[in-house]
Amino acid sequence: MSDEIPDDVVPEVRPAAPGTAVTERPVTGSEKETLHRYLRKHRAALLAKVDGLAERQARWPLTPTGTNLLGLVKHVAGVQAGYLGEVFGRPLPDAPAWLESWEGDDMYATPDETMADVIAFHHRSAEHADATVAALDLDAHGTVPWWPEDRREVTLQQVLVHLGFEVARHAGHADIVREMLDGTAGDGDGNLADKSAADWVAWREHLVAVAEQAGLRDLRV
């Protein structure tokens, strides 16, 4: 049976199971600990989005630009390997050749890579990144060779802010892509409204009606 989504089918919204992402804790500790905690939280939220999927589902492109869940996981793994590795003179050992590619090789898993391979690399990249954070102070200096020359010199603080934003952005992409695949939405942390399947259908129909009304108003202008 094909798991491709027909154009006329809207998947039923299913909240993610509680505990699938990192649960928030009171904001305590140093600035570095706080920045690192949010990075780990968003990283876990992204990885949770491939839980329970078949290989074909995890690779399926759901946007005109080919965005797919496994590609997002692979991309983030490569990004954190670069920013918390090469930038601070701590390159990831035995790094795959695709890390040096600018042809989009990090945005999908090849036929020779399994979902388990990509997830394992993500964990290896995360462990290396975490070791860099543990080893350096926030004012430690690094160089981002792929940035414009006048902005290449950075600190660990800048990189943690930039990387936290990057991972959160892609975790948001993954949330939408997963919902499009099978209706699973949210992180199981209580941020998704508590609605039944029928409630979500009614809510979507309400939003469609609002959009239609707005479109009619535009026609009258």
Score class of each variant (00 low, 15 high):
E153S: 15
V201R: 15
T20C: 15
T110M: 01
L216T: 06
A168H: 01
L181W: 04
P145A: 11
I119L: 09
E127M: 10
L84C: 10
V73C: 01
T65D: 11
L92R: 07
R43F: 15
L53F: 05
V50L: 01
A44V: 10
R37G: 03
G172V: 08
S101T: 11
L47M: 03
A58D: 08
A21C: 12
D105S: 06
D182N: 14
L219V: 12
G104S: 03
R124G: 02
V177H: 02
L62P: 11
V50K: 00
Q80L: 15
A209Q: 12
T132Q: 01
D94A: 11
Y38L: 07
G19D: 14
T63R: 07
L138G: 07
H173C: 04
A131M: 06
D150I: 06
A48F: 00
N191G: 02
A44P: 04
A185Q: 09
V177K: 06
R204W: 13
V144C: 03
G186H: 01
K74H: 04
D218G: 02
A97W: 12
A97P: 04
L35N: 09
P96W: 11
D105A: 04
A209T: 06
L138W: 06
D182P: 05
V27E: 14
G66F: 15
E86L: 10
Q213H: 13
H123N: 10
H128A: 11
D199C: 14
A109I: 03
K195W: 12
A214G: 02
E55C: 03
H122I: 00
E31R: 15
L136E: 08
A58Y: 07
L192C: 04
R204V: 04
V159K: 01
V27W: 08
D8G: 09
